[in-house]
Write a protein that binds this DNA or RNA. Structure first.
Lengths: 219, 219
DNA sequence: TCCTGTGAACCGCTTCACAGCT
DNA sequence: AGCTGTGAAGCGGTTCACAGGA
């Protein structure tokens, strides 16, 4: 109940738990043991028990954890119990793909704006969205109370877009541009560089060090 | 010279160093100090020095590291000095965006195949590629000696595609499907779940814990 | 008996601190 | 004087191991 301090690593696992617990709930399974959850997530059962313990999430000895309870508490901890509003800057291939990505809406995110500077793109439709000029970024963020910003611009535009998003009220940035984005301390930034992912894999492929095998991206 | 054992964390930073060193090289700057590199990457200078040290990469005291040397050695360590061949399964929005992603080709990856099961998509063009049926996956992987596989299929197809890629010779998998993908121990798997990235940000946005501020995805 | 709750040991990575070249 | 090379301390997270309740 009284959530202790969660470790950074633990926070990055919560969405993984949520994903499989959600699926389990769909099967009408009432409880799940840390062992089964371990099999389905790839996280060790010790770690799972400790994460839940730190979250203040208690199970039933000899049985496991109540699926509904997990679902509710993890969603609440992540802040995805209520819908979150997202804006996307950069309507290139990646930006369009993100705008259409079903996984966002199905997991509690609503995209409320898609922006670009290319006059040829402005006014066109991407799925149910219309591409706006970047000048509408700030008013739309404010009006829609968007808190999450996705950056899928070329690298040289990324910092400016980030700064403008933050000034309008965005408090979390997901940056796909291959460049470092700086933001004030109250803002969280996650960088996802797709080429870097491949390069990391390239290393492991060459050096037959025992491979990876784990979830998510987290720094 | 004799590369010691690199830590997992260190390996995930190498591509970040490479990215900025490449840029620096373009400016004809001959050397770079760990301090400057720290500013440009967001990694601490102590960590950078130790990473280079562990890589067997020596600098010049009082001066810094030679940019050319860094470029060469880091590329070599990552195995991106020579071109790597990549196949992509799943030609939905995300798969198409990845197929067109300029960052791949500019950083030493060549996409040699794009596959889907949807008859409406098979035969159509995506950039310079033609979408093939999944039945061509194995022959093409073998013929082109592809070593990296990208999975951008729906989750229920991900494991089958992964297994087939591996059986044909792929040794590294980048999985975008929101599900756990299992592979034999000699194969490396990295999972990138875009919705999970947003959920992690959502947590930090709610809990004004001091934010993140770091690179890449790594587990 | 089974699976959770949790201190304690352990391990890996980062940071400190400073000696050593140039 | 300046910046690297590197042992050693420090920290955070995972795993061990087992006690404890359903």
């Amino acid at each position: 109940m009284t959530p202790r301090r969660l470790s950074r690593a633990s926070i990055e696992r919560l969405p993984v738990y949520l994903r499989v617990v959600f699926q389990i709930a769909g099967n009408r399974q009432r409880t799940i043991s840390s062992e089964e959850l371990a099999r389905l997530t790839g996280v060790s059962q010790d770690t799972i028990r400790r994460d839940f313990f730190n979250l203040g999430l208690l199970g039933i000895r000899g049985v496991g954890y109540e699926v509904d309870h997990l679902l509710r508490e993890i969603s609440k901890a992540l802040g995805v119990a209520e819908e979150q509003r997202v804006v996307i800057a950069g309507a290139g291939n990646l930006g369009q793909a993100l705008a259409n990505y079903a996984g966002f809406s199905s997991r509690g995110f609503r995209i409320v704006g898609l922006f670009d500077t290319d006059p040829k793109k402005i006014g066109t439709s991407v799925g149910t969205l219309v591409v706006h000029g970047l000048d509408l970024l700030e008013p739309l963020v404010r009006e829609e109370k968007a808190t999450l910003g996705v950056i899928s611009t070329p690298p040289d535009a990324a910092q400016e877009v980030a700064t403008r998003m933050v000034s309008a009220g965005v408090i979390s940035l997901l940056n796909f541009a291959p460049t470092l984005v700086e933001a004030p301390p109250h803002v969280s930034v996650r960088n996802v560089d797709l080429a870097i992912e491949l390069q990391i894999l390239s290393f492991y492929g060459r050096n037959e060090v025992e491979g990876l095998e784990q979830v998510a991206l987290g720094p």
